[in-house]
């Protein structure tokens, strides 16, 4: 049971959107522009950053749902998601994506831990200003979403299979409610 009175049975952040639709709207708009809006990074790559940060924040609802969306969007390459999240290996990803995930991991722990060398390294692997910006803001935003979901102890379905449909819907329709 969540810490505040939300409707029973609605999972994770959606129960919070229902509790507070006024704040839910800009939160959905933010997820949509960050994960589906124009970016040099594909939606699947951006979902992977979201799932990676959520995993590091130990937020199982956000990790499972964004991993499911990433698997749906990566389609036949979906193994990269489990390689990264479960097997802790980024070997199947491009050097640019690895360098960006390194920055995302730094942002997750604290913004100040990002160094000029981290940025330089990403540039050397082909990242431009927009790749770097979008990576930092996605990682920062999931440091918010994860805390919102877990700080209110919202309902988190236990099994990976529970997130299959959710991931498909997120992949197909995005975040506009």
């Amino acid at each position: 049971m969540a810490y505040i009175k939300v409707e029973e049975g609605i999972p994770g952040i959606r129960s919070l959107f229902k509790f507070s639709p006024e704040t839910g709207k800009p939160l959905c708009d933010l997820a949509e522009v960050l994960l589906r809006g124009p970016s040099p990074l594909s939606s699947s790559e951006r979902e992977l950053i979201a799932a990676f940060v959520s995993n590091r924040n130990n937020c199982m609802f956000c990790m499972n749902s964004h991993a499911a969306a990433a698997r749906f969007l990566f389609d036949e390459d979906k193994q990269v998601v489990d390689d990264l999240l479960k097997n802790q290996t980024a070997d199947s990803l491009s050097p640019k994506m690895k360098a960006l995930l390194w920055i995302a991991g730094k942002v997750q722990s604290n913004g100040k831990s990002v160094t000029p060398e981290d940025i330089e390294n990403a540039r050397k692997e082909g990242a431009n200003d927009t790749d770097i910006h979008d990576t930092v803001l996605i990682a920062a935003s999931f440091s918010m979403f994860n805390r919102y979901v877990d700080g209110l102890d919202s309902y988190t379905p236990a099994n990976e299979e529970d997130y299959l449909e959710m991931g498909k819907r997120m992949g197909q329709k995005g975040y506009h409610i």
Partner: peptide, 11 residues
């Protein structure tokens, strides 16, 4: 936690 990371993460 978003703002602080955005500001410092972007230097």
């Amino acid at each position: 936690c978003l703002y602080n990371r955005y500001v410092d993460g972007m230097g």
